[in-house]
């Protein structure tokens, strides 16, 4: 029997929300696709606080991916306001966005996106290189992050020597290593079998308990229900936004 990805809701804790991290108001995003102009987002407003565990849900074409890119500072809105910890992201240029991503956001991708020729440790160190940490400090922090995801004994393995679940753990360690304000996970269990998916969601639960802010983008209801709050998108608009329960 395949284990269910659905969480055990009874008895789980919800941490009180902290200060405001993300403040999005009236955001639209237009794409030009040949002749056609696509309204990926038609005016989305959402506030996310520290210590939240949020899921973004929606079918394909709902604008879910566009919102995720926006939240991850990979993209800027066509119109509207986007403040990240009080800083106006909407008008930032490439390199400023890169610095925000480096310091404030930890990415977890569906396909893990580890560098194939680097060891797990080197992969985890990468954001710290861009942040300008000295080699010794880099190593200490990276080892700590690896231990935090339970891979203290896999430091010098390359991605192809690790299982899918282990790879995603390395990716999570990499997301955590620079102590970001939010961790943004895009379909984190999409490429994993159910059992491993359960493990990864358990790890997320643990990270949440440790005080991290998590945003999970998914199309799976079972995964979304691990969060404490779900934002549902449809046709570029927020359909609903409320606590899980």
């Amino acid at each position: 029997m395949t284990p269910s990805l659905a969480p055990e809701l009874a008895g789980r804790i919800t941490r009180p929300a902290g200060p405001l991290v993300i403040d999005i108001a009236g955001v639209t995003k237009l794409y030009q696709m040949g002749e056609e102009i696509i309204h990926a987002l038609r005016g989305v407003s959402v506030k996310i606080h520290r210590n939240e565990y949020l899921a973004v849900m929606g079918p394909s074409g709902s604008g879910k991916s566009t919102l995720m890119n926006m939240l991850g500072c990979l993209d800027t809105p066509s119109e509207g306001r986007y403040e990240f910890t009080g800083k106006n992201v909407a008008t930032m240029v490439d390199d400023e966005l890169a610095d925000i991503r480096n310091r404030e956001i930890g990415f977890v991708f569906q396909t893990f996106n580890l560098l194939p020729r680097s060891t797990a440790l080197a992969n985890v160190e990468l954001p710290l290189i861009y942040a300008g940490y000295a080699p010794a400090e880099r190593k200490t922090k990276a080892i700590q992050a690896m231990q935090n995801v339970g891979l203290g004994d896999r430091l010098h393995h390359r991605p192809n020597e690790l299982s899918g679940g282990q790879r995603q753990r390395v990716a999570i360690a990499r997301a955590l290593v620079n102590s970001p304000s939010i961790i943004l996970a895009d379909e984190p269990t999409g490429n994993l079998d159910s059992k491993t998916g359960v493990e990864i969601m358990a790890l997320f639960e643990q990270l949440y308990a440790q005080g991290n802010t998590l945003i999970v983008v998914t199309h799976e209801e079972d995964i979304a229900r691990h969060a404490r709050r779900i934002v549902r998108l449809r046709d570029g608009l927020i359909e609903s936004d409320g606590p899980v329960g």
Partner: peptide, 16 residues
């Protein structure tokens, strides 16, 4: 290309 995308997501600037 994908690696470049990952590096950029992790904070690599254009210069990098």
């Amino acid at each position: 290309t994908k690696e470049i995308g990952t590096r950029k997501a992790l904070g690599a600037r254009r210069r990098t």
